[in-house]
Write a protein that binds this DNA or RNA. Structure first.
Length: 256
DNA sequence: ATCCTGAGAA
DNA sequence: TTCTCCGGAT
């Protein structure tokens, strides 16, 4: 379909784009930190955490030199703690060898994050396809012929603010009158099409126990006492295996 | 296909 | 209370 969509899209982005700290820089480390944080956490919550993070560890080398315990303590609340471990590992590689041509060779960096850093930091014409961008492309039936960083940024922003999964705001969309294949008739995705999603409560998951253990250790507190010993032991075992927790002199601690 | 986290909105 | 949310590794 038409490149007619590109003009309205970029015009809209020029008007509506939020002023976010990681958009004021092209430092690949800053872009990477923001992308890893944003993969799990809402924008409004990331902004202050991002700024504090950058103030404390301004460069990849600085982060690589920090203790894992400090990094994890600063990460708690931002979602999957394993990502912080990978982020630090990736920065260690960068500090030693510089940024690789193939960003996805770095630990924890997959196709999406590689494209995002490539586009927003290095100015490459790669389209970071996250769930928002994928949705916008599917609905519009459009694929940008020349995926400039601006186009990628605009698609991500449009998907996040307008072309939302459940409540698509076609009335506010710059593409609705410009050739979007789904304008005004977006099919609301079925509630939940998973085959057999037992939808267990989050508090019943191992993730929750792991999160609580790491949070407690980071805060210098005792392990949560309100958990079944079996569940606690299972979570700790996994955390140790993943390198998030170490056994030290009879107790547990975050690794140095 | 499953695992990893947890705050905020609905 | 339930549902959502800008991936990657195994």
């Amino acid at each position: 379909m038409p490149a007619v969509l590109e003009g309205p899209l970029l015009a809209w982005y020029g008007r509506q784009a939020r002023d976010l700290p990681w958009r004021r820089t092209r430092d690949p480390y800053a872009i990477l930190v923001s992308e890893v944080m944003l993969q799990q956490t809402q924008v409004v919550r990331v902004v202050p955490r991002f700024e504090a993070w950058m103030a404390r560890w301004p460069t990849a080398a600085a982060l690589a030199a920090a203790s894992l315990a400090d990094v994890l303590a600063a990460w708690v609340g931002l979602g999957y703690n394993r990502r912080a471990v990978r982020l630090r590992e990736a920065c260690a590689v960068v500090a030693r060898d510089g940024w690789p041509a193939d960003l996805s060779s770095l630990p924890g960096i997959g196709p999406y994050t590689a494209a995002a850093v490539g586009a927003f930091a290095f100015g490459r014409e790669e389209l970071p396809v996250d769930t928002n961008v994928r949705r916008v492309l599917e609905r519009t039936g459009w694929t940008p012929a020349v995926p400039t960083p601006q186009v990628g940024q605009a698609l991500m922003e449009l998907g996040a603010l307008v072309c939302r999964a459940r409540a698509a705001a076609c009335g506010d969309c710059p593409l609705a009158g410009a050739g979007c294949a789904s304008a005004g008739r977006v099919a609301v995705a079925p509630r939940r099409r998973g085959p057999a999603a037992p939808k267990e409560r989050f508090e019943a998951t191992n993730r929750w126990v792991r999160g609580r253990v790491v949070a407690a250790l980071a805060a210098g507190e005792e392990l949560p006492a309100d958990l079944e010993p079996g569940r606690l032991a299972h979570a700790v075992e996994g955390l140790v295996r993943d390198g998030l927790v170490v056994r030290a002199d009879g107790g547990l601690s975050l690794p140095v």
